[in-house]
């Protein structure tokens, strides 16, 4: 067990929870970690979205595939992130971002598939009947009617996936690819340097909240018909 030692030299007395001096002197490192964290989150969510929506459509169109796809996603979701990362890292490189990216995409994928499918199955049958009656083909109906109506579900999934991805990126610090997680773990290893730990944590939670708000705003813009309806 590690024991706490005195605060790092040059930090004045004690080991404060927050220090402007630390933030000022390490602005480059902090900025780089934040950029890395946000970039990895964006890559993960976009990649997962590109794969998840078609997969949900397949599960929606081909009913016998729905149950297996959901069951498989449930099992994969149970596998702990650290285990997944330790199984992927030896294959994809123990210091490469790819290992973290693949693990993150897998988790985000599962949230997105489930929510997109839930959104698609919630489209009322009357609406589908009406669209068919108006002469829409299957793909036309999907693009013009079903996907737009499933948008609230997809957006809920997108928000959940984004927030949990921001938190999960920190696990990448196992192989030194954790963005702000590297700051948190770095502070831990650096004689429990509280300012470094807390700066990483606050930025991480802040990033999640900002992205969540942005997506909520995007959702309001994209689904104007849900506004004003009592939910």
């Amino acid at each position: 067990m590690l024991t706490p030692v005195a605060a790092p030299a040059g930090d004045g007395p004690g080991n404060p929870w927050f220090s402007w001096r630390y933030v000022h002197e390490n602005a480059d490192t902090i900025g780089e970690a934040l950029r890395f964290h946000a970039g990895l989150t964006a890559q993960t969510v976009l990649l997962a979205l590109v794969v998840a929506v078609p997969l949900a459509v397949v599960a929606y169109w081909i009913k016998p595939l729905t149950a297996p796809i959901l069951a498989l996603s449930g099992i994969l979701y149970t596998i702990p992130s650290l285990a997944l990362l330790s199984l992927l890292a030896p294959l994809l490189g123990t210091t490469s971002t790819t290992s973290v990216l693949v693990a993150l995409v897998m988790y985000a994928l599962l949230v997105l598939v489930r929510n997109s499918l839930a959104g698609l199955t919630q489209v009322p049958p009357e609406v589908i009947d009406a669209a068919t009656g108006m002469g829409y083909s299957r793909s036309g109906r999907l693009l013009r009617v079903e996907l737009p109506l499933a948008l609230p579900g997809i957006l809920t999934g997108l928000r959940l996936a984004t927030v949990s991805t921001v938190a999960l990126v920190t696990v990448g610090s196992l192989i030194g690819q954790g963005g702000l997680g590297d700051l948190i773990l770095g502070g831990f290893r650096n004689n429990f340097y509280k300012a470094e730990i807390l700066t990483g944590t606050v930025l991480c939670v802040g990033l999640a909240l900002v992205l969540d708000l942005l997506l909520a705003g995007l959702g309001r813009l994209l689904t104007p018909w849900t506004r004003g309806r009592a939910t």
């Binding site: 610090s173 948190i184 730990i197 939670v205």
Partner: peptide, 13 residues
């Protein structure tokens, strides 16, 4: 959901 487990694990000690 937004709190990284790693953060709590390092802060609580």
């Amino acid at each position: 959901l937004a709190i990284p487990t790693l953060a709590l694990l390092t802060i609580l000690p």
